[in-house]
Design a binder for these strands. Structure first.
Lengths: 212, 212
DNA sequence: CTTTAATCGATAAAAATATAACTTTTTTAG
DNA sequence: CTAAAAAAGTTATATTTTTATCGATTAAAG
């Protein structure tokens, strides 16, 4: 195990970006120091939970009665989340969703740089979306290797998702962010994050139904 | 509480759509019965977990040595997840992501019908995306009330997300699906599902980094 | 300078979730 | 017709995650 002390929990990691966003807001308002109580109140969380989460990432301890120095905590979070350390990624599937992702420049802030896209549709191959070229799928292995890309985004229909994933893996990609409604089978050592919109929707509906 | 026995867990609810998708595949291949072991193997899960999850939704019990009848289990899952019971929704923010969602007809399968969109940009107001009209934001309350819409999708920049959410709530919307990178403050009784792409990305990067 | 109230950090308890162990049932094979 | 195998169902244990408690610290107010 490469764990420094105790491994950071998945749940914590999911909350950190929300803290960071909240801190940006406070900083913009000129708030110098921020307490875990304040963050918890702003994000509807438990103060103790916030404090524990922060303990993982903060380099300097918080002061009683004041809390943490806003700018320092922001820096610590950004470092921890790797926002300063940009990674190149490719995207496969320049359809509706793929188009939207390529068109969104906000990921740069999170240290993600989508360099180009791939597709099989001759209508989009050769075009450029938001300055990012769309290549033929067959060129994927070559380009991934040449630029040493480690992250791939999948926005193809579920029918071809596994095929695309296999191609990515064989080209050397080490992490896949998939928006396809399909379970992907990947070898150990390749990280996967599956964005399951159907599941999200199910969760929301369930809350909705249980009200009336 | 309307809980039949023990309340269904959030984690379970997140897995059910994946089961359903897998069952569709098997059914298409002509597989008559399916065991929890088979599902678990296909989706890299624990068989007991699958069995417990299924116990929540299945109307008829599984048979030892055989498992569940594929078509029956599909029907049970679809019913449970409410896929047959379509809900109307509106979307606010006809930008890149909003455009992609409006253009995607796959949500119908999940019982979600996005009827129309709203925006403030004169360039898109009055146009139609995938057959869905885009109205001026000011008409939102009127239309939500007229058609008794209960679900709203937010795809606006984070700066205006809270404002949009407030408008939705005051118009009578009871569930919000937000893609904005911003914590929303909502009154009790309004359900919220926040799609935090930054958090997803953080999770993925962390796995990636811990490899090398 | 002393008191006060707020907050941190650490530890403990509780709740939720996942995994494992065991028992029962039913099909298939000998 | 009986034994073996496979899988469901149930109960128990372990793990993870959240929440609560307590003493120590310290900026701010009197």
């Amino acid at each position: 195990m490469t764990a420094d002390r105790t491994e950071i929990s998945k749940a914590t990691l999911n909350r950190l970006p929300a803290y960071l966003r909240y801190l940006y807001e406070l900083d913009k308002k000129g708030v110098q120091t921020v307490s875990s109580t304040m963050i918890a109140a702003g994000l509807d969380l438990n103060p103790v939970q916030v404090r524990k989460d922060i303990a993982f990432v903060a380099t300097s301890p918080g002061k009683p009665k004041l809390g943490y120095v806003t700018k320092e905590l922001i820096a610590d979070l950004e470092n921890f989340l790797g926002y300063h350390n940009t990674r190149d990624a490719i995207l496969v599937g320049a359809g509706g969703l793929g188009h939207a992702i390529l068109g969104y420049d906000g990921f740069a802030k999170y240290g993600l740089n989508v360099t180009c896209a791939f597709d099989v549709d001759p209508a989009v191959i050769g075009t450029s979306i938001n300055g990012k070229p769309v290549y033929d799928m067959s060129r994927l292995p070559e380009l991934v290797k040449r630029f040493n890309i480690s992250l791939g985004i999948i926005t193809v229909p579920s029918g071809s998702a596994q095929e695309v994933a296999d191609l990515m893996v064989s080209a050397g990609i080490k992490a896949i962010w998939s928006f396809a409604a399909k379970h992907l089978n990947l070898p150990a050592g390749v990280a996967l994050k599956h964005e399951d919109l159907a599941a999200s929707l199910a969760l929301l509906r369930m809350q909705l139904v249980s009200q009336d």
